[in-house]
Design a protein around this nucleic acid. Structure first.
Length: 486
RNA sequence: GGCUCGUUGGUCAAGCGGUUAAGACGUCGCCCUCUCACGGCGAAAACACGGGUUCGAGUCCCGUACGAGCUGCCA
């Protein structure tokens, strides 16, 4: 008889949502939903300096867009609110809990100023290291009261023992033990009265009855300190699930520099939400079978956090593109038209059958913006080199192409039916009568009407779309070009 | 520097003491084809290294190397 699982996504509103954060949110959502549990959103805005306006909206938009629907959050209070830490802070609760620890000797007031702290820094191996020396722990109760009364700025620090060890258990990594001497006296309450993440997350996770704390691997080394906090309060610690990092191609923690590091960046690059979610779900987790394409519901059903990997994963945009292409191919046409229309309209302004063109392109693109380079020739015949008429495998060269175009032109002028079927009949009859292979007859025509080496469809389909007038015009251009060269 | 974690093909990733070490992306080749794609078929490509334990180790243990994370009044 186990209790209902409760996980939380606790982002700080500092900008766009990084894919690492998104994946954390996804896994938190999946772990809860797989077991029919609750998924909670808590806004961790304790760093007032890094706050970015509108960032909370981005969080909501991302969650809604990806389908990670929360059961509780700032907008859905189920009795554990408020769900925004600045609002919680305003109630004085964090300070109250911190004082409780001070009473117990598990924390202490610290009045050290910037200069003194600065003097504690030492440089080791090119990095600045600073370990607090418990200077203020020596202060007597009276001295503390005095300084407090005098209004001297203070922080409250955790009082960690210098001997012994602390152990916590991660669901993936197992038991992790560190010497207490490694644990520095981290700040619980900052001088502006706000709690640090380190403190607030422990208090809130407990108060909100979070059963599984799921977070990035970067927190694994601070977890022993959190563990000591739980023990100091006498609270039962939650199950911990630390997630492996997502890195760039150089195996470094994904940075904002990558340009493809946030969910919104990806959308702007023409990726579709379902593909992004699907792809990141597989970055650090794999199902028991070899399935790769998942709907969110399928992920909920299949997701078992015990199969999460322990080693970091490289974010591979090439595979994401492949997956995006799979989603596009499987997408129903109406939805594809809706999504693709803005892109095709960037390059085609003429009154052409855009849906027909989009049908041609659907299996050939990986991201939406790819459409443009495939279809721009419909708008206007590009400048092209007559070398394109020469193709060994098609058995064509300039002379043959000129001959074909000249012979085909009158036939195309003679009909008004520019349907693929009719065009097909005309051309195939010509090819049969002349006794040449299909490619020999069609290559020159396709080249003339497109001006491109590669096109998303064959000659008939292109002619149907651009129509009689434009077809004739382009074939004449081809004839002129070829004649000029002979 | 210290601490912690990690290490299967270029990438994601199966494997949990006995396998010809899966699969996917990418790459290359072939087929299909009026081009390019799609689709189909196929190929190259990996257990970081050294010691143990064991009849037997990618799988367990210990070292080494390498990588990453942390070492903030950021989360």
């Amino acid at each position: 008889m186990s209790q209902k699982i409760r996980t939380r996504f606790a982002p700080s509103p500092t900008g766009r949502m990084h894919v690492g954060n998104l994946r954390t949110a996804l896994y938190e959502f999946l772990i809860a939903k797989h077991e029919g549990g609750d998924f909670i959103i808590r806004i961790e805005d304790t760093d007032q300096e890094r706050l970015v306006e509108g960032a909370v909206d981005i969080i909501y938009r991302t969650m809604a867009g990806t389908g990670l629907v929360h059961d509780e959050g700032p907008d859905k209070d189920k009795g554990y609110g408020p769900y925004v830490q600045s609002e919680r802070q305003a109630t004085g609760m964090y300070l109250k809990y911190a004082k409780e620890l001070v009473e117990k000797g598990e924390a202490y007031y610290c009045f050290c100023d910037k200069e003194r702290l600065e003097s504690l820094k030492t440089e080791v191996a090119g990095k600045e290291i600073s370990v607090y020396d418990k200077h203020c722990l020596k202060l007597s109760k009276e001295e503390v009261e005095e300084k407090l009364a005098a209004g001297i700025p203070y922080v409250i620090r955790q009082n960690n023992p210098t001997e012994g060890q602390t152990t916590f258990k991660d669901e993936l990594y197992g038991e992790i033990t560190v010497d207490n001497s490694e644990l520095d006296d981290m700040i619980l309450i900052k001088s502006d009265g706000f709690p640090t993440y380190n403190f607030a997350n422990v208090v809130d996770d407990h108060l909100m009855e979070i059963t599984h704390v799921v977070r990035g691997n970067e927190y694994i080394s601070s977890s022993p300190k959190y563990q000591r906090l739980y023990e100091a309060f006498g609270w039962e610690s939650p199950a911990y699930v630390h997630l492996p990092l997502i890195t760039d191609e150089n195996h470094k923690k994904l940075s904002k520099r990558c340009g493809h590091s946030s969910y919104e960046d990806l959308l702007e690059q023409g990726f579709i939400t379902e593909a992004i979610v699907n792809y990141i779900a597989l970055l650090g987790w794999s199902p028991e079978d070899n399935q790769e394409i998942f709907t969110l519901d399928e992920l909920i059903e299949k997701f078992d956090y015990r199969h999460i990997s322990k080693s970091p994963a490289v974010f591979d945009i090439v595979k994401l593109k492949w997956m995006n292409g799979e989603y596009i191919k499987a997408m129903d046409n109406e939805k594809f038209y809706d999504m693709a229309m803005p892109y095709i309209k960037e390059v085609i302004t003429k009154d052409l059958d855009l849906k027909k063109i989009l049908d041609m392109v659907k299996t050939r693109i990986e991201v939406l913006p790819d459409i443009k380079e495939h279809v721009d020739f419909f708008e206007e015949l590009p400048e092209y080199d007559i070398e394109m008429y020469t193709h060994k495998k098609m058995k064509t060269d300039s002379a043959i192409s000129l001959e074909v175009l000249k012979e085909v032109l009158p036939m195309l002028e003679a009909t008004d039916d520019y349907s693929v079927d009719n065009l097909h009949d005309i051309m195939m009859k010509y090819i049969a009568d002349k006794g040449i292979k299909n490619g020999t007859g069609l290559w020159p025509v396709r080249t003339a009407v497109s001006g491109k080496q590669m096109t998303p469809a064959g000659a008939f389909e292109i002619m149907e779309v651009i129509g009689k007038e434009e077809t004739i015009k382009r074939i004449k251009v081809g004839i002129e070009k070829l004649e000029a060269a002979v």
